[in-house]
Simulated assay, not measured.
Amino acid sequence: MEIRQIPENKRYFLPLLLLGDEQEDMIWRYLDRGTLLALYDGGRLRTVAVVTDEGGGVFELKNLATEPDSQRRGYGRAMVEHIIESCRGRGTRLLAGTGDSPLTIPFYERLGFQESRRVRNFFTDHYDHPIYEAGRQLVDMVYLAMEL
């Protein structure tokens, strides 16, 4: 496994980023100011992530997406663990914003994140279409936090 920082040509990764954030204009709000990371295994792109520096020692994981045929094989976990280690010593807190999904919340909790706050109606107010995960419409943005 190899994780690379992608400094340019970030648009190339848009199809995979859209798995983690379904609306393109939302991705453009953070992609250029964020650090794009790509995880390769066996020469294949498996997972991408975007991390932003929010200032004051706070980093935020804005997007995490794994190729569908590579999911549930530890790639997402490896990427988040890499991000945690790279943020330690440079910051004090790592945030992850996600929908209130029975798939994603437990994933982050197993990695040591705890729910810190919710933004009510985030997905219904900011997205031009309903977003569903595991059969549930996402409405609120859930912020999970980890002290570094």
Rank of each mutant, 00 (worst) to 15 (best):
Gln137Ser: 06
Leu64Tyr: 07
Gly20Lys: 00
Glu81Arg: 10
Thr124Cys: 07
His82Asp: 09
His126Lys: 11
Met141Phe: 11
Ile131Arg: 04
Val80Arg: 03
Asp53Pro: 07
Tyr127Lys: 05
Trp28Lys: 05
Gly55Phe: 00
Val139Gly: 14
Ile131Pro: 00
His129Met: 13
Leu95Cys: 10
Arg93Phe: 00
Thr92Val: 13
Ala38Glu: 00
Gly34Gln: 04
Ile6Lys: 14
Ala96Ile: 03
Ile6Cys: 11
Leu138Arg: 13
Ile3His: 13
Tyr108Arg: 08
Arg93Ile: 00
Arg33Lys: 15
Asp100Met: 02
Phe113Arg: 08
Arg117Gly: 11
Glu115Asp: 02
Gln137Pro: 04
Gly43Glu: 08
Arg33Pro: 08
Asp41Val: 04
Gly56Met: 00
Phe13Gln: 06
Tyr30Leu: 03
Gly57Ile: 08
Arg44Asn: 14
Ile27Val: 15
Glu22Thr: 03
Glu2Cys: 10
Arg44Leu: 10
Arg44Glu: 15
Asp125Glu: 14
Tyr132Leu: 08
Leu61Asp: 13
Ser70Met: 11
Leu148Trp: 02
Arg88Ser: 14
Tyr143Glu: 03
Ser116Tyr: 06
Ala38Ser: 10
Gly135Met: 02
Leu95Asn: 11
Arg90Ala: 10
Glu109Pro: 05
Met146Lys: 10
Thr92Phe: 03
Gly89Ser: 02
Arg77Asp: 05
Leu45Ile: 09
Gly97Val: 00
Tyr30Asp: 09
Gly55Thr: 01
Thr124Val: 10
Leu37Met: 14
Arg4Ile: 12
Lys62Phe: 03
Gln5Tyr: 09
Asp125Ala: 12
Phe13Ser: 00
Asn63His: 12
Leu19Gln: 11
Arg120Lys: 15
Ala96Lys: 01
His82Gln: 05
Tyr75Leu: 13
Leu95Glu: 05
Ile3Tyr: 10
Met79Val: 13
Ile83Asp: 00
Gly56Pro: 04
Met141Tyr: 11
Thr92Arg: 05
Glu147Lys: 07
Gly135Trp: 01
Asp32Arg: 12
Leu37Cys: 14
Leu61Phe: 06
Gly76Pro: 05
Glu60Leu: 03
Tyr143Asn: 12
Arg118Lys: 12
Asp125Val: 00
Pro130Lys: 10
Ile84Phe: 01
Tyr143Arg: 04
Leu17Ala: 15
Arg120Pro: 13
Tyr132Gly: 14
Trp28Cys: 11
Glu24His: 05
Gly57Cys: 01
Gly74His: 13
Arg110Cys: 05
Tyr143Met: 10
Glu67Met: 13
Leu39Met: 07
Val51Ser: 03
Ile6Trp: 07
Arg90Thr: 09
Asp128Gly: 12
Pro102Leu: 12
Gly99Leu: 02
Tyr108Val: 08
Gln71Leu: 11
Arg93Leu: 06
Thr104His: 09
Val50Ile: 13
Tyr75Met: 12
Arg117Trp: 07
Gly74Ile: 03
Tyr30Val: 04
Gly57Phe: 02
Arg33Gly: 15
Gly55Glu: 02
Glu147Ala: 08
Gln71Tyr: 05
Leu14Arg: 12
Ser116Arg: 13
Gly112Pro: 05
Ser70Ile: 04
Gly97Met: 03
Thr35Pro: 03
Pro15Thr: 07
Met146Glu: 07
Tyr132Cys: 12
Tyr127Leu: 06
Asn121Gly: 02
Gly97Asn: 05
Pro15Ala: 05
Pro106Tyr: 04
Glu24Lys: 14
Gly43Ala: 14
Leu17Asn: 09
Glu8Met: 06
Lys62Gln: 15
Ala78Gly: 09
Gln5Cys: 12
